[in-house]
Structures are given as structure tokens and as C-alpha cells.
Write a protein that binds this DNA or RNA. Structure first.
Lengths: 207, 207
DNA sequence: TCAAACTGACTGACCAGTCAATCGAGGGGG
DNA sequence: CCCCCTCGATTGACTGGTCAGTCAGTTTGA
């Protein structure tokens, strides 16, 4: 039956997340993944053509969901601050839901300028452009000031979030839910204030 | 003479920067470094005890300079915005001066949450704390608002810069000097606006 | 003459990916 | 109802290649 087969594939992927998170992509052995999955070494190669393709799959699975979230936020007819809040929320919630997967994506793909990152450069940039598009629209509507280029704003926004996540990743302790929520607010608050035109105080929400 | 010896050590370190930047730490061979330096394989082990120790040395050399720059900025009696501008300037200038070294430090150390990054976690955090201290002082003086924790502010600030650098690192093209300067201004401008209390417009400098 | 700088062939360990063999579920024929 | 066949799922020993680090020697310069 296809279900059982699909399950094993999934089991391997989930095991890979744990192993990559724990030991790092370059440092771990394929046999570690097989052991973690409780599966024979060879089976890994039945479902994936290489160690790299496993990381590939994990990254694309998640990143495509994020691109969809960004596109959806952009398409909505809400204030730019709210759009950015949705995106920040999505990323923070991704961390809450599966911190190990986020660790792998950030450490092994997003930030790996050599080897692996290059393969997915286009995908990663798609996310920046999506965010930049939201900023550009806000600028043309006069809500955000124009001294800052949308591309830069997108990088500052995404970079802040990724850095905060990285901080959590480095800490070995779990992060409390309240802290996750607070971080989300602080990120959006700080960056939006930095981007907004002065004399414009849209909602007056101060946490 | 010690000079010649020191020179070869330096030659190896400089070659390592180029090789790590081009191929990545995990992917390159020690023989690549020796070849790039125009030196016999064994000589690398005459000066360094392992491949890792080379990366180690490169990171610490540069990071200690940065920590000094942060401490100096903090100690100066200038406005917090100017302190942060000094730091952002230092980092951007580090990139201008040696993009390959910055690539190596960012990609292989700062962002490598596993293996290597852990070794230097304390050093890396020292930088965040230094920045956080500047923010905390600005808050207690009433210049920055207190809703944002200094630790978060430091991460947002540093994360924005690192992300912009990463963008340059990924682009293969050289970045124009004007763009470097503009980026510096945008980073400091955006983040400081995000952190300042409203109704306070210290210098009115808009680029 | 001595020590430090320097050389590069060699070794031992490691590991990604292969492959021949086994298992087991479904189905068709007797 | 049972047996056997087929084919995908599964197994894990094995191979071929790679490379970090060693070491016994050679050169250099004071």
C-alpha cells in the first residue's frame, strides 16, 4: 500500500531533521539518519538519491509554504504593518511548531552561502522580493517613507527575525510562548516604526 | 629570522581566507590551502594544529577588533545613534576592506549553530551584549523607548546588518562604495527610528 | 654545526553510495 | 482454500575514493 511507503519516507525525513539539527548536515553520516529513523541504511537511498536531496526536500517543503504565506499577506487588503505582522507571525510560529526544522533551514540552507545555499538562492530571494513588494506598495501609498529602499527594508526585516530565531536556536533552553509572542510584537513594532513616515500614527497600538 | 616565519604563517592564513570563502570550510581540503599559499602541505601543520584552528585564528583575530570597536563606541560620550552608527560603520568597512574574510566569519562561524559556532558562542554573545548595553543606557536616559528589550534591539540591529552583508556575499558582483555608505545610513536610520521615543528628533539628519 | 623552517609521500580512518539478497503483501490459478 | 509468483519494500555488507594529520627526511640561515 502507498500509505506505508509514504510513511517510511516521512519517517526518514523527520529523522533527518533531528539528526541535521543535532549534528549538522556536513558532520552527520547517512547511517545516523537511518539509525534515527529505525530503518536500514539502504532504504534511505530507496527514497532519496543523496544525502543532499534529503535536505533539499526538507527546505523546499517548508519554504514553499512560507512563500505562499507571504504572497497571501501581500494580496490581502490590509495595512502594511499588518501584512508584515502576519509574515513575522508565520515565521515565529514555524519555529514554535518545529524548532529543529527551522534550525536546519536557517543554519544549513538560508545562511550557507557556499555549496548548498547557492542552489536555492532564487527561492530564498523570492521571499525577500515578496516582502520588498509589500514595502514598495506602502511607500507608493505614502505610508512608509521612501528614503529606505524596499530591498533593504526586506533584508532588515527578515534579518532581524532570523537573528532572533538564531538566538533561540543557540540557547539550549525552550522558549516560553509569551516570549515568542513578545518577540513577534517587538520585531514588527521596531521595524515598522523605522519604516513609517513620521506624523503618521496608524493605530496607536503600543504594547 | 622571525619575520620570514611570521610571513609564512600570514601567507597561510590569507590563503585560507580565500579558500574558505571560495569552497567553504567543510568542503575544502587542507591541501587546497597549502596550494593556494604556495607552500608544502606539511607546513600548514607546522603553524597550525588543525584545519579548524586556522578558522579559529581568523575568527578571533577579527572578532576581537570588533569587540574593541564596540567597547570604544560604548565608552564614548556621544548620542546612542552615533554609537550605533560607529558600529555599523565598522562592520560595513570590514566588509569593504576584506569581503572574503567577512564572508568566512559570517558563513562559517557566526551562523554555524552547530560544531564551530558553539565554540565561539561566548565571543559572539559578547558583541550582542555590548550593543545591548548601549541601548540600555539610551533607554535609561529616556532617549530610546523601553518597550523593546535591549537584547532584542541588539539582535535586530546586528541581524539587519548581517543580512545586508549576506546579500552582498551572495551577489557575485562587487558592491559600489556609494551603496556601502547608503546601506550604513539606512540601517542606522531605520533601526534608530524604531528604537527612539516619539517626539524626540535629536539632530534632524535625513539623507 | 644546530635548530627551526620546510617538504611531500604515506597511512589510517571514515563514509557516501551500490548492490545482491531477502522479505512480504496481493493476486491469480489450481 | 491454499500455494506460488511477482514486484516493490527493505536489508546491510561491501567498495572506492577521499582526506586529515603524521613523520622521516631535506634545506636554510645564523
Amino acid at each position: 500500500m502507498t500509505t506505508a511507503a509514504t510513511d517510511k519516507r516521512r519517517v526518514i525525513l523527520d529523522a533527518a531533521v533531528r539528526v541535521f539539527a543535532r549534528q549538522g548536515f556536513h558532520t552527520c553520516r547517512v547511517s545516523d539518519i537511518a539509525d534515527e529513523a529505525g530503518v536500514a541504511y539502504g532504504l534511505v537511498y530507496h527514497y532519496f538519491s543523496s544525502k543532499e536531496q534529503i535536505l533539499d526536500t526538507l527546505f523546499l517543503e517548508r519554504w514553499d509554504v512560507m512563500l505562499a504565506a507571504i504572497a497571501e499577506a501581500d494580496a490581502s487588503h490590509r495595512a502594511p504593518e499588518e501584512k508584515l505582522e502576519t509574515i513575522a507571525g508565520f515565521i515565529v510560529d514555524s519555529y514554535r511548531h518545529d524548532p529543529e526544522l527551522m534550525k536546519v533551514i536557517i543554519v544549513e540552507v538560508t545562511r550557507a552561502a557556499n555549496t548548498f545555499g547557492l542552489t536555492h538562492l532564487a527561492k530564498i530571494r523570492e521571499a525577500y522580493s515578496g516582502i520588498a513588494a509589500i514595502v514598495a506598495k506602502a511607500q507608493s501609498e505614502g505610508r512608509f517613507r521612501s528614503e529606505v529602499t524596499p530591498e533593504f527594508a526586506a533584508q532588515a526585516f527578515y534579518g532581524s527575525i532570523e537573528q532572533v530565531l538564531t538566538g533561540w536556536i543557540f540557547d539550549s533552553v525552550d522558549v516560553a510562548d509569551a516570549e515568542l509572542e513578545h518577540a513577534k510584537t517587538m520585531i514588527v513594532d521596531t521595524i515598522c516604526r523605522g519604516l513609517e513616515r513620521r506624523g503618521l500614527d496608524p493605530a496607536g497600538e503600543s504594547a
